[in-house]
Amino acid sequence: MNKKVKNAAIALEGVNHKMTLMLGGFGLCGIPENAISELVNKEIGGLTCISNNAGVDDFGLGLLLKKRQIKKMIASYVGENNEFERQMLSGELEVDLIPQGTLAELCRAAQSGFPAIFTPAGYGTEIAKGKEVREFDEKMYVLEHAFKADFAFVKAWKGDSAGNLIFKGTAKNFNFNMCGAAKITVAEVEELVPLGELHPNEIHVPGIFVQRIFQGNNYEKRIEHRKTRKKNSNVR
């Protein structure tokens, strides 16, 4: 089945004001750079964004924050971003902080048709307030509801027109879990290869979870904290 579309503009057709969007990536690793640029271009607002992080001031979701396009952010960690802090403290931005493992599992639940999950994360803390809790095998768990999103934007290393995807390194992160977790999943790839070139054994996400795929371009792939060691170091 052909899921290939020409560019980001076409891939984002139907994305509108006040929608709930999922965006893959961890920190700046594996973020859907092209989809984010296109969201900035579209100048739509009132968005609810589900993403582990909120980018940095001048990159990633920080670009949408700067233009006040995001009304609510659902994330696990939002440090590294001054504009985010300012908007949150002034009350312009609504923020829902969710434990990272729960965030991942609520994407997976949406992808897999589970309405909710029980997780031990957050039990006894302020994030469990008002939520149903239950005991299983002498341990307490919190009920968390699966996400409901309109679009999921993910970025993969390689993909084909059938929507099959392969990720590289730790860029798999939330991209993998968000595929098929929204009504429409849009994948952008560094390399869109001819059908048949990806071996079925190697595919991470089968095309059934992806509705639109396009060849991304101009990837910056910014590194947040560049750490290196000298050639002669013997640190483990």
Binding site: C29, K227, R229, V235, R236
Partner: peptide, 21 residues
């Protein structure tokens, strides 16, 4: 593993602290 050698950093291989590894 440890941090990469200078020049061998890969934006797609980081740890939870967002450091290249």
């Amino acid at each position: 593993g440890p941090f990469p050698f200078e020049g061998e950093e890969d934006a797609d291989i980081i740890n939870a602290g967002k450091q290249t590894i």
